[in-house]
């Protein structure tokens, strides 16, 4: 029995559909059930959270979780669909500590918010950065200028006014 079938059997209400991501079994699950399903997945022996990917599909966001089991030597993929207006999914930091930075990165670049994350701030871009670059409607033409303020904070502007020493 494949891992997705097992998941479907255990949590029939949570699984929307099953399919394949390349050669890896994939289950699309309900957004509200993510934490529940992830807990079950961990119980099933999928101890390695390999990657979290967020993708902007213009009318919705997809968040893809790639799991692997070191004991069973099996892959499992979970996919969650989030609204485009308010992309929010549950954080998995309570189950995998490695999810911390992966979720911060996804928030930073794709703009998906992870509820329950202890420290959901930008990780690669400066704090005041405008927009999330991997969203498809990200403004590529406006330049952003970053300087460091008195207290070490990042100051971002679009006109470069923060670059001038004298006001």
């Amino acid at each position: 029995m494949s891992a997705t079938d097992e998941l479907k059997q255990k949590l029939p209400a949570a699984v929307v559909s099953t399919g394949m991501q390349g050669n890896k079994p994939m289950a699309v699950i309900k957004k509200e059930e993510l934490l529940n399903v992830a807990g079950k997945v961990k119980e099933m022996g999928f101890d390695h959270l390999s990657v979290i990917t967020g993708t902007d599909y213009k009318d919705h966001f997809e968040v893809v979780y790639n799991f692997y089991s070191y004991n069973k030597k099996q892959n499992l993929v979970l996919k969650v669909i989030a609204d485009h207006d308010k992309p929010e999914v549950d954080s998995l930091t309570s189950l995998w500590k490695g999810a911390d930075w992966l979720e911060r990165e996804t928030y930073d670049l794709v703009g998906i918010r992870f509820t329950g994350h202890p420290n959901l701030v930008r990780i690669l871009l400066p704090d005041g950065w405008i927009g999330h670059p991997l969203q498809k409607d990200y403004d590529m033409n406006t330049e952003q200028f970053v300087t460091i303020g008195e207290k070490g904070e990042d100051i971002v502007s679009t006109d470069g006014s923060n670059l001038l020493r004298r006001k």
Binding site: D47, L49, W96, K97, G98
Partner: peptide, 8 residues
């Protein structure tokens, strides 16, 4: 255990 949990 930690190494796996952290995704190392």
């Amino acid at each position: 255990e930690d190494a796996v949990n952290y995704g190392m």
